[in-house]
Computed example of a mutant assay.
Amino acid sequence: MRTMGFSKSGAFLLLVATTASAESYLYEIAKQEPYKTAYKEMLSFPEWVSNAQGTSTPIERVTADGKRYMLGHMCKPHDCADHQLSVVFSADGKQSWGLLATRSADGKTFYKQLLGHPDRAVEALLNTSFADNNPED
């Protein structure tokens, strides 16, 4: 812990900087409490996403770049306008990619997170699904 004091116009300001350790690394502290819990929470998805328990549209069979896929859209129950997930599965079901969209606090824009490293064709399918399910946005 470092403590530094500065005097400015007769007022005394105290700046306290704390670190886990000057020799710590992310891979180390991410395995120790309380950092471990915070790290895990940062990487987790909302329960409706993790458990696939949302309001859903029927699966569509689609083709992109000559490959077949299955495409679905789901949203958070009772909050579809603000929390949505589009998912593309490979035809054999062994790969999946997603687009998680959460509306900003001001209600004007969506924060979009791509999942599973989609290529351009799959990303286009995900964006089309999002647009189709949000015609006014």
Rank of each mutant, 00 (worst) to 15 (best):
N51R: 15
L15N: 12
D65G: 07
T37V: 06
A101D: 01
S44Y: 08
G10C: 07
K112W: 03
G107Y: 08
A124I: 02
A121H: 06
L14P: 05
T128Y: 05
A81R: 15
A38S: 14
K40T: 11
T57M: 11
W48V: 01
L99T: 01
S44N: 14
R61C: 10
Q32K: 15
D119L: 01
S56Y: 09
Q53S: 14
K31S: 08
I29S: 03
T55I: 10
T102V: 14
L125E: 00
I29L: 11
L26F: 14
K94W: 05
G72M: 10
Y111Q: 15
C80E: 06
P46F: 05
K40P: 05
T109W: 11
G72L: 08
D92T: 02
P46K: 07
P118S: 07
K67Y: 09
C80H: 05
K112A: 03
T19H: 11
S86I: 05
L14E: 13
V49L: 06
A64E: 03
E123A: 11
A17Q: 14
C75K: 01
K8V: 11
V62K: 01
M42I: 10
S129D: 06
K67G: 04
S129E: 04
F110A: 02
S21M: 10
A131R: 13
A91C: 05
T37M: 04
G98W: 00
T55D: 15
A131G: 09
M1Q: 10
G72V: 04
S96N: 13
V88W: 00
Q113M: 12
G54M: 02
K8H: 14
D79F: 03
E123H: 05
M74T: 09
D79L: 05
Q95W: 03
V62L: 03
T55Q: 15
F89S: 07
S104L: 06
S21C: 13
W97I: 00
L15G: 08
S96F: 07
I59W: 13
S129Y: 02
D92P: 00
Y35N: 13
G72K: 06
A81S: 12
G98E: 02
R2M: 09
D137T: 10
N127K: 13
P135T: 03
P46R: 06
T63A: 11
E123Q: 15
N134M: 07
T63E: 14
D92V: 00
M1S: 10
L13Y: 13
D137R: 14
P46N: 07
G54F: 02
H83V: 01
K94I: 03
L100Y: 04
N133L: 05
R103G: 01
I59T: 13
C75D: 02
K67N: 14
Q95T: 03
I59R: 12
M74N: 06
T102C: 09
L43N: 13
A11T: 12
G72F: 03
V62Q: 01
H117N: 15
L43H: 08
A52V: 08
G66I: 02
D119P: 00
Y35C: 12
K40W: 06
E60T: 07
A105P: 05
C80D: 04
S96M: 10
C75V: 03
V49T: 06
A30E: 15
D82Y: 06
G66K: 02
E41W: 11
Y27M: 11
E23H: 12
G93C: 00
G66T: 02
L99E: 00
S21A: 14
Q53G: 11
D92H: 00
A124C: 06
H73W: 13
M42Q: 14
